[in-house]
């Protein structure tokens, strides 16, 4: 479904990603794990078109999307839940979801997609008229995911969904992501909470200093001594 070939990207003179190869098949859940500063967020931003890649190929459903701007990528069916949630704090929960369905095709389907989001996240339904900025961190993360679902994506990019959340909330959030997965969405997730995320996904990539160091089935990766020591803390 999504294939990255030799993607190189960075900011100014600094190169954050070197020759990254990555594949996500339809219906799969894939994680990218790695330490701070490895280039995980850059990778997500390259896929969603927020920053351009310098070299390499980005193919989604047989179409090359390298160099396309962000709004165009959304129209192709990739929704990005950015790091730090980035909801619209002054707008209500309902209006945040409405913004998620900004593109014409998504707008038409607004009633059913919002019903589905409220079904997935009942807490949001109760707070429809509340300002999004007044929600708790966990609820804001759900809203950010809900907003992404409103664009009726085929692939969802989740950037550090557990960041800044209480441990209990993290577990609930991973349960919700599992449910979203079961509904047939393809997911690419970036996480620092390696132990939890490896239980959720089928495959994972280990990114270190801008390069893919390892890839494999999630359970195999979790059992590698090297990964266990460095990231899982066992």
């Amino acid at each position: 479904m999504l294939e990255l070939k030799n993607i190189t990207a960075g900011y100014g003179h600094f190169t954050a990603l070197w020759d990254v190869q990555l594949r996500v098949a339809r219906g799969e859940a894939v994680a990218v794990v790695g330490p701070n500063g490895a280039g995980k967020t850059t990778l997500m931003r390259v896929i969603s078109g927020l920053i351009p890649s310098r070299a390499g190929e980005l193919v989604f459903e047989g179409e090359s999307l390298a160099g396309r701007p962000a709004h165009d990528i959304v129209a192709h069916g990739i929704a990005h839940v950015p790091e730090g949630r980035r909801i619209f704090p002054a707008l209500t929960v309902g209006d945040n979801l409405r913004m998620g369905a900004f593109l014409p095709a998504a707008r038409q389907a607004f009633p059913e997609s919002s019903a589905r989001v409220y079904d997935l996240f009942p807490a949001l339904a109760e707070r429809q008229r509340q300002r999004a900025g007044s929600l708790s961190g966990g609820e804001q993360q759900m809203l950010a995911i809900g907003r992404a679902l409103m664009s009726r994506p085929k692939l969802i990019l989740l950037d550090e969904p557990s960041m800044g959340l209480a441990p209990v909330m993290v577990l609930r959030l991973f349960d919700l992501i599992r449910r979203i997965r079961e509904e047939g969405y393809t997911i690419l997730v970036v996480e620092q909470n390696v132990r939890q995320v490896l239980k959720l996904v089928d495959r994972a990539y280990l990114l270190e200093v801008g390069r893919i160091k390892m890839e494999g089935r999630a359970h195999e990766l979790a059992e590698q001594d090297f990964v266990r020591k460095a990231y899982v803390g066992l």
Binding site: A70, H71, V74, I87
Partner: peptide, 10 residues
């Protein structure tokens, strides 16, 4: 950034 990520041509 959030606006671009929901498909708005900023």
């Amino acid at each position: 950034t959030a606006a671009a990520s929901v498909g708005i041509h900023v």
